[in-house]
Design a binder for these strands. Structure first.
Lengths: 111, 111
DNA sequence: TCAATATTTTAATTATTATTGAAATATGGA
DNA sequence: TCCATATTTCAATAATAATTAAAATATTGA
């Protein structure tokens, strides 16, 4: 992972609303949630501000969106998330086996 | 972990220089590095700007500093780091066993 | 105590990011 | 086609964070 991608991802997460959105999407799993459901989950309105934050997450590579009928679904990009976590812990303690993150979450492994 | 602590930590990491410092300290392990060694590792000068970034990491809870003779050492706060990673992946996919981060790095486990 | 190395503080300037509110687009059902 | 629901765009303003450079402090050894 490149440093500037990581900075962009971290910057996207460094905001109260976006962090809540991200965690909501992580909990939601691979299918994601529609904008309306996200708004519900956060207790906010589905307005321009929410769209702005969602787009920031997508621009940072942490989420993807797809249209389904009249709804737009946003979902976590788990590959990007795992890359970011690994980047943060890479070669922890000089690589002496502390247990650096390799993969933290993969919807395909869900029960 | 509280949301605003996580936002502060992520904000501290969302900066090219600070992210490099953090990763350098993670690699360095529990003992950390002196300011001069950090500057060396980054290829920058040990000046006011570096101090500023180091203090940001400490203020965000991600690092700690201690004086040793005429040197000041900075080191990763691994507990805070692990809490942050866990916060990001909490209840992944609704808690269905995808492998959420519990602990990613602990210097005491080093070989 | 003097000088050298190590690190920090401060204040002014510049750059980046967030918020607001209103209008616009897009989709599906009556 | 018309209406209601769903989501997005835009532009102006406000708020926050980053950079610079110079002076200040602190510790050790001669």
């Amino acid at each position: 992972m490149e440093s500037n991608l990581a900075v962009a991802a971290l910057g996207a997460l460094a905001h109260e609303t976006r962090l809540e959105i991200f965690r909501l999407l992580v909990r939601a799993g691979g299918g994601g949630l529609s904008v309306g459901r996200i708004a519900e989950g956060l207790g906010v309105e589905a307005n321009g501000r929410l769209t702005f934050h969602l787009k920031e997450l997508v621009a940072a590579g942490l989420a993807a969106s797809r249209q389904e009928g009249r709804f737009v679904f946003y979902s976590t990009d788990y590959v990007a998330m795992n890359e970011l976590l690994r980047y943060l812990t890479e070669d922890c303690c000089g690589g002496l086996g502390c247990g650096e993150v390799v993969e933290s979450c993969n919807p395909e492994k869900c029960a």
